[in-house]
Nucleic acid binder design. Structure first.
Lengths: 233, 233
DNA sequence: CGAGCCCTTGATGCATTTCAACGAATGTGG
DNA sequence: CCACATTCGTTGAAATGCATCAAGGGCTCG
């Protein structure tokens, strides 16, 4: 029940949710103080669940390290992955009282867990912070719209190319070589295709000279511009 | 520049955005008064644009009658339809200063056009109304997540079945026979498939005895339960 | 070294797109 | 009101993309 809000990792994660000039916002200190006493830092093992579909949505989570995957499973055993979330992303922003998807940790993760009532309280006292939060929601909405567009219009291999570009931006922050934390199956379930098609996609992008595969989880984008062009066509 | 906020059609549209007990909310009268003097009711002809992608997003729109389609077009001429919006839906809730899609009227429409500054102002004065608005955003987000799931996991004919069920709920409000306002091409671009596949989908659902097609735009769901089952599998 | 897991590759079949032609509905000008 | 043009929807045939089934390869861990 004690969170060290002076840690750089926590500060940067919060800044990524609430804007880079978060510290200057009216009420930010009050918010940080509340977090320091009421929020907690938890660790989650790889492959275990943060929460499951239809659990009561009492908490909001912000990953500090590691990767979280949001998923939903169908009546007939198949699975859909909605999103991969990294450091500084925000999980559980829904205003519904139950989660509509599960959150599973892909790797060992460190996560800040915040009581939703605390958040709501802060929002009521500090409209500026609430506003930032809603801007974040809006950004997410736009991100999902883009994803919807990709799902509707692109071939499997194009979706994979665009996925890798997105991961480069979010994991590698522009470094062409980066570590892909999720399995081929996870990617397949995210992009709405079979595991085999994902694998063939990797092979195809490799043989086109667009990427190189050092190991299953280490990828280098050899030609991001051409990769983007391939994805956009 | 004068809006008759006492009209039933306008009241119901607002209620649908801001909740059924909107009138009881703190500040709702103030909001209505502002709308009465500052908002306007406009009419838009079929096939004309309310706004286009990358226009400055200065207004928020609420359809009173008619159908609006949100679309984006690609570099190479293809088009994606994000959503069909009906009476009481809300358009342009983005906090970005430019729209990221175009809004096109499918039929002749009547629309309430509200200046975004007015909205922002009201939200600052009345947090309760702002909150309703954000709940609405959240609902939209969940709706799009469902759509993403459908796009990733379902076959073309299943997507069509689920689309028809959604339209029944939103247009017919549960009346099995209803008027489909959009063309086959619009549906195809919404569901991410070709016009021909859409057409074959209609034929297939008809021959399965799930729907009947009185005319191109008049559809009856003969067996909604079976249709839902077909879509869910 | 062997078991198990994840990934890759090959072969086949089905779903969907594409190309092409036809039919139905709608609108226009004579 | 009819002939014609035009738009929109349906249907067929061929080609393609992707899923599925099945087998093999490579890595990791006991």
């Amino acid at each position: 029940m004690k969170l060290d809000t002076s840690k750089v990792s926590i500060k940067t994660s919060l800044a990524s949710c609430f804007g880079s000039n978060f510290q200057d916002l009216n009420g930010s200190q009050d918010f940080l103080d509340e977090l320091a006493t009421m929020a907690q830092e938890i660790t989650v093992e790889a492959n275990s669940y943060l929460f499951k579909e239809s659990d009561a949505s009492n908490f909001v989570y912000i990953p500090i390290s590691g990767v979280i995957m949001l998923e939903r499973s169908t009546a007939r055993g198949s699975r859909h992955v909605f999103a991969f979330l990294f450091t500084g992303n925000l999980i559980g922003l829904s205003e519904f009282s139950f989660y509509t998807f599960s959150a599973k940790s892909v790797s060992n993760s460190t996560i800040v867990k915040i009581n939703k009532d605390l958040i709501k309280n802060v929002f009521e006292r500090h409209p500026q912070i609430a506003k930032r939060f809603h801007e974040y929601t809006n950004m997410v909405l736009n991100y999902i719209l883009d994803q919807l567009f990709i799902m509707g219009q692109k071939t499997a291999h194009q979706r994979l190319a665009l996925f890798l570009l997105d991961m480069e931006k979010r994991i590698g922050h522009g470094t062409k070589k980066f570590f892909l934390p999720m399995s081929r199956q996870d990617i397949a379930d995210y992009l709405g295709m079979s595991l085999e098609t994902t694998s063939r996609g990797f092979t195809s992008l490799k043989s086109k000279g667009l990427i190189s595969i050092e190991s299953n989880y280490s990828i280098t984008l050899l030609d991001p511009v051409a990769l983007a062009e391939f994805g956009d066509n």
